[in-house]
Amino acid sequence: MLSVIGNLAILILTLVDSHLKTVMYFFCQIFSFLKISFTSACIPRFLYSISSGDRTITYNACVCQLFFTDLFGITEFFLLAAMSYSHYVATCKPLHYMTIMNHRVCKRLIFCCWMTTVLIMIPPFSLKPSLEFCDSNVLDRFFCDAKPVLKITCSDTQFMEKMVIICSALILIMTLVFIPLCPAMEKGIFLLFFPHDCVSITYGSCIFIYIKNSAKDEMEINKGVSILMTSISPMLNPFTYTP
Results as ranks from 00 to 15, higher is better:
192 L>E: 15
196 H>C: 06
142 F>I: 07
234 P>Y: 03
161 E>M: 14
103 H>Q: 14
240 T>V: 15
50 I>S: 01
48 Y>T: 05
156 D>F: 02
74 I>K: 07
92 C>I: 11
160 M>Q: 08
208 F>I: 12
109 L>S: 08
18 S>H: 05
97 Y>W: 03
188 G>V: 09
64 C>E: 03
155 S>Q: 04
58 T>W: 06
54 D>K: 11
122 I>S: 07
200 S>F: 10
22 T>P: 00
232 I>H: 02
226 S>H: 07
86 S>E: 15
236 L>F: 01
91 T>P: 01
224 G>M: 11
6 G>D: 00
218 E>D: 08
231 S>W: 11
78 F>T: 04
178 F>N: 08
190 F>E: 01
186 E>T: 08
66 L>E: 01
174 M>G: 15
224 G>C: 09
142 F>T: 08
232 I>S: 03
38 F>M: 13
45 R>H: 08
167 C>I: 09
120 I>F: 13
113 C>H: 00
228 L>P: 00
207 I>Y: 04
83 M>N: 04
164 V>A: 10
227 I>K: 13
22 T>E: 05
107 K>Y: 11
48 Y>E: 05
12 I>V: 15
65 Q>T: 08
195 P>A: 07
79 L>R: 05
138 V>C: 10
81 A>S: 14
52 S>M: 07
216 K>M: 08
12 I>G: 03
186 E>A: 13
114 W>Y: 07
213 N>H: 06
24 M>W: 02
136 S>A: 10
141 R>G: 14
100 I>P: 04
82 A>D: 02
62 C>G: 15
12 I>Y: 14
56 T>S: 15
60 N>D: 12
112 C>M: 10
69 T>W: 03
103 H>C: 09
48 Y>P: 01
207 I>S: 07
125 F>Y: 15
127 L>E: 07
7 N>H: 00
156 D>H: 10
182 C>Q: 15
77 F>D: 04
184 A>T: 03
181 L>D: 09
56 T>M: 12
65 Q>S: 12
26 F>I: 05
17 D>E: 13
211 I>L: 15
94 P>M: 06
10 I>T: 14
36 I>M: 15
34 L>P: 00
111 F>N: 06
53 G>Q: 03
84 S>G: 15
182 C>V: 01
200 S>W: 10
113 C>G: 00
196 H>R: 12
197 D>R: 09
163 M>K: 06
84 S>V: 09
101 M>N: 13
130 S>R: 05
122 I>Y: 02
34 L>S: 02
77 F>T: 06
154 C>R: 04
224 G>I: 11
78 F>R: 02
211 I>C: 12
235 M>R: 04
108 R>N: 13
179 I>R: 12
234 P>A: 10
75 T>Y: 02
232 I>E: 00
129 P>N: 04
209 I>D: 00
152 I>K: 09
96 H>D: 14
191 L>A: 09
131 L>F: 09
148 P>S: 13
12 I>L: 14
92 C>T: 09
148 P>N: 13
188 G>T: 06
195 P>V: 02
105 V>P: 00
204 G>D: 03
27 F>A: 06
